[in-house]
Amino acid sequence: MNPPSAQRIKVRPAAEREGRKDYISIRDFGFWYGEKKALDAISLDIPERQVVAFIGPSGCGKSTLLRNLNRMNDLVDGIRHEGDITINGRSIYDPGLEVISLRRRVGMVFQKSNPFPKSIFENVVYALRVVGVRDRAVLEEACETSLRKAALWDEVKDRLNDSALGLSGGQMQRLCIARAIANRPEILLMDEPCSALDPIATGKIEELIHELKEQFTIVIVTHSMQQAARVSDRTAFFYLGKQVEYDTTEKIFMNPSQAQTEAYISGRFG
């Protein structure tokens, strides 16, 4: 029995960078699915252009919180929330703010890659098509830029008109990332983006996250502690709908202040 200790996980030193420290601000946020309370009194600030990882055992509410940041949970019947979430100072629940415009600013990549049954090109430019961009040159340029950012360009540049469903799993997930960033959102939400991928594809996506951080604020939900340690600047640990600890990744993994965090990271439960 040799559980991985906190010391054996390599932690990247947190790079403090410019930008607002409270770009996304979650205040006393509680959330219910019907009668079941999924989140309780969450309060945390996410700085601009940093990577924040949400970790915790299954069912702890980390995905629910993530899906609240672009109000994807609105699709579910019987939901209710309390508290507030602001992005750049403005509440996402502001009645004057349309959900559609919120989602255009907050891109999302899902656990299971979900390309549309269309060509690679149409997949990438979908977000531009829905806002009414028709100019072929603009679309092509956006397609190339996004695919380059998603490190997929070289692999697919010769078959942009082929069906996206013919790509490999890792390529599909990178295509989904390209699609999410095509209309230049400010924030990128990633819900366990690597859970269905092999280690090589995972490595590529993690590299990608490093590069995307220059332009986007990234919130990532992950089950892999190693991944959280490798890619994130800050980490939040959730347990049973409550926020146990939120700090720099270095602190969380080297010197957590809560015993529960320590126990989870060292693999004693969860």
């Binding site: 559609i100 989602r103 255009r104 999302m108 899902f110 979908y126 977000a127 999410a180 095509a182």
Partner: peptide, 19 residues
């Protein structure tokens, strides 16, 4: 997932249905 992917890119419900 396909429905969510479309909505998450900022497509409206009608656009999601149509496209």
């Amino acid at each position: 997932g396909m429905r969510e992917a479309s909505l998450a890119t900022g497509a409206s419900k009608w656009q999601t249905i149509r496209d």
